[in-house]
Computed example of a mutant assay.
Amino acid sequence: MTDGNARIWHVCADLAARYAEGVLPEPDAWSLEKHVEGCAGCASRVSDAVRGTAAGAVLAEVRDAVLTAVPVAAPGRQVRPDTPPARLTRPRTPPVTSRLARLLWAAGPAVRGAWLPAVLVVAAGALALAYGTGFPGARALLLAVAPVVPVAGVALSYGPHADPVHEIAAATPGGGLRLALTRTVAVLAVSLPLLTLTGLLLPASGAPAAAAWLLPGLALALGTLALASFVGCRTAAGLTGGGWLCAVLAPVPAAPGGEATARLAEQLSRCLGGAGAQGAWAAAAVLSAVLLAARRPAYDRPLRG
């Protein structure tokens, strides 16, 4: 398995045979699959081992049928009708383009789709309320909505509703919780600085500091991921995001006319302001991270939704 260097290993014939027979332990199989992504020699050895099994014969038939129906050749190369499928080659994707494509796919809604424009609309709407209409509670509204934005991004970025190949991705070494965390980091990397900067540009008007929502946003995002292992991403996002909105907006409808903004600012100060509230959110983030780590095996299977 090793080639003399303790940090470099290759797939031996016995390991490839055990993998092809399906008797290799799951962690070793994941390690092997990750290794053959960048090692052509080991990939060829594993491929030869798989061809020697009953499943290999079926896979070969499927491959030949696909290549016969949709022949693919290198750019500029003519494909003759009698060319064996095994001799056809696919055009190689430039390494930089391939890495960029994988990065864009892994980053999820932070760089594609309608999620980023939606975040920009939230930021622009808050600025328009403050400086276009003179509304004094623009920062309070932004702080009430901001923690839900990463939660919505998490809900839209992972699960069968987000990826047509979710079931396949969940079973790969780079999928599962690793992919969910990659997309969550991308969501946070976009929303946290953008909405915090917007809050700094808004008048305070009794609302907490513009950065007071950062820990709650992180805690709710981690809590959503942990809860998603039980009920799925969208349901988990509805519970965490909906719970937050109910908590901060509950006193507002009962406020007398003209005092709704002040009541919202007071409620936000209770939920976000002070060392006690921030410490509680930090503890919630840590507990969510611990629960998420304990529930990691659940991400090795497709989530409910």
Rank of each mutant, 00 (worst) to 15 (best):
T2F: 11
D3Q: 15
G4V: 11
R7D: 10
R7H: 08
W9D: 07
G22C: 00
P25N: 04
A29P: 06
W30C: 01
L32T: 08
L32M: 03
K34I: 08
K34R: 11
K34L: 11
H35C: 01
V36Y: 07
E37M: 01
G38R: 08
C39Y: 03
G41K: 05
A49I: 07
T53C: 01
L59R: 13
E61F: 10
R63S: 14
L67E: 14
V70K: 11
A74M: 08
P75M: 15
R77Y: 04
Q78E: 15
V79Q: 01
R80D: 12
R80L: 14
P81G: 02
T83Q: 12
T89Q: 06
T89W: 04
T93S: 13
P94W: 00
P95I: 02
P95H: 00
T97L: 15
R102S: 07
W105G: 04
W105Q: 03
A106S: 13
A106E: 11
V111Y: 00
V111E: 05
A114F: 05
W115H: 15
W115G: 08
W115I: 03
L120I: 15
V121Q: 11
V122K: 11
G125R: 07
L127Y: 00
A128G: 01
G132S: 05
G132Y: 04
T133N: 10
G134S: 14
R139G: 13
R139D: 12
L143T: 05
L143M: 03
V145G: 08
P147H: 00
P147N: 02
V148K: 04
L156M: 15
Y158I: 14
P160S: 00
A162I: 01
I168V: 05
A170C: 01
G176P: 12
R183I: 10
T184Y: 01
A186G: 10
V190D: 13
S191N: 14
P193A: 10
P203T: 02
A204H: 07
G206C: 05
P208M: 13
A209L: 08
A210K: 10
W213V: 05
A226R: 13
A226P: 12
L227Q: 07
C233L: 15
C233S: 15
G241T: 08
G241R: 12
G243Q: 11
G243W: 11
V248K: 07
V248W: 03
L249P: 02
A250V: 06
V252L: 04
P256F: 04
S269T: 10
L272E: 11
G274I: 09
G276R: 11
G276Q: 09
W281D: 10
W281V: 12
A285P: 03
R295W: 04
P302N: 00
L303Y: 09
R304G: 10
